[in-house]
Design a protein around this nucleic acid. Structure first.
Lengths: 226, 226
DNA sequence: TTGCCCATGTAATTTGTTACATGATTTA
DNA sequence: TAAATCATGTAACAAATTACATGGGCAA
């Protein structure tokens, strides 16, 4: 078991494989099914929750690489229940990946709402505003889900880092709500109706000031009516 | 060539196809190459910039569907320069997609840094802080790129909506910087060193207040040292 | 006894990437 | 005249999804 096993390219797995291995890096053994449920209430808030079929595929790959082991229980036949655990090699590889500066790229954001705003000339102004409203609704629902997950995470003391990640996600969703409010205001400006039909909130502005470069405080961008 | 052409499923294209069609929805005809460059300085900030080879593929598909037309110029031979334009059918379909409430899902975010923080037990605290620092650097660079793109967008009067999207992106990046600052503070707390080695900024807090549910103001989460 | 949750997997397909091939036009 | 940029495409592959197949255990 020395020469040319299968480990062709050691440190070059897709992010999903590392994410699954990360799930395994917490104490305890679990099944693919359990991993999926856990991902649904943690990773999905700031990263991604793979399809269950992909989790099984990654688990097999990780085992082939020697990064995980499995013990089957129940029927000795095919499709027996398998509980997976990380190996020492797996832990080491994962730690290497997690700390690798080159590996960590920029965050990936695909924001469907903004794509629609960008081509806003195709929609009625009202439709656009409605889309933003739906986005706010979805964000509120997500925020509630994050907070629920936070309660679970708070129960277990060794989940300090997962709790941190969830706190980040909570703030991120709050920021998303602020961005939506500002977007709505800009949309009004561009439509040429300055501040008339705003239904609720009385101009709660002051968005994201930073030590970096102050966000253009005066003078909205559009507002060019002939 | 009338009966069963190829348009099997009318309104069911991948988001990338719609994005490319969206690029085409602005006045003027352009080549795939030009589309790619434009996407690199607009769509990529809040959505995504497809590979050039995929742009060509999508353009061919859009033409097959009758959503775009192309006129070749230069050599009549193969691989002639092609300028694409949207058709009336294309514009209609795109408008339908853009306004469709069911079509617009939640934004997709894959944040590699947070994935690493989530499994922070695998890294040295210093490494983790360094990763956050790099993220801040990247974000600042992106922010500068957004601002440069905004200058270009400001030149052309009919780019009101693209300008809005860029403004959103600018604020989004500023929010990301705030989130990184808060994350760093939480990391310090969890490490047990409360607020000592903060190098620069004198506690510029007050992140995202919202009418929704105030972000836990007092009492940090971790801070449980034995 | 029907339906739901647990649990694992295969197959087909879509989406998207990188690497490669080719050549024209512009700029230094 | 060499290099960069413009410009279009093909081929091979990777990543990930959906749909499907299978079956045990448990609760209404």
């Amino acid at each position: 078991m020395t020469s040319s096993h299968k480990q062709s390219k050691k440190q070059d797995l897709p992010p999903t494989a590392w994410a699954v291995l990360g799930l395994l890096s917490f104490p305890g053994e679990r099944t693919g099914y359990e991993l999926k449920k856990w991902a649904d209430s943690s990773l999905r808030f700031f990263y991604w929750s793979p399809a269950i079929s992909q989790i099984y595929a990654e688990l097999r790959r990780l085992e082939e690489l020697g990064y995980a082991t499995s013990a089957r229980s129940g029927p000795e036949e095919a499709r027996a229940k398998r509980r997976y655990a990380i190996t020492a090699a797996g832990r080491e590889a994962l730690a290497g990946w997690a700390g690798d500066t080159a590996e960590a790229g920029p965050p990936v954001l695909k924001h469907g709402l903004l794509l629609r705003v960008w081509m806003g000339h195709l929609s009625e102004p009202e439709r656009l505003r409605a889309l933003v409203g739906e986005h706010v609704e979805r964000t509120l629902a997500e925020l509630a889900a994050v907070r629920e997950a936070m309660e679970h995470a708070a129960e277990v003391p060794e989940w300090g880092f997962p709790a941190l990640a969830l706190r980040w996600s909570e703030r991120q969703h709050l920021a998303e709500l602020d961005l939506a409010r500002a977007l709505l205001a800009d949309l009004d400006d561009l439509a040429g109706l300055p501040g008339v039909d705003a239904p609720g909130a009385p101009e709660a502005a002051a968005p994201a000031r930073g030590a970096v470069g102050e966000a253009p405080p005066a003078g909205r961008p559009g507002a060019r009516r002939p």
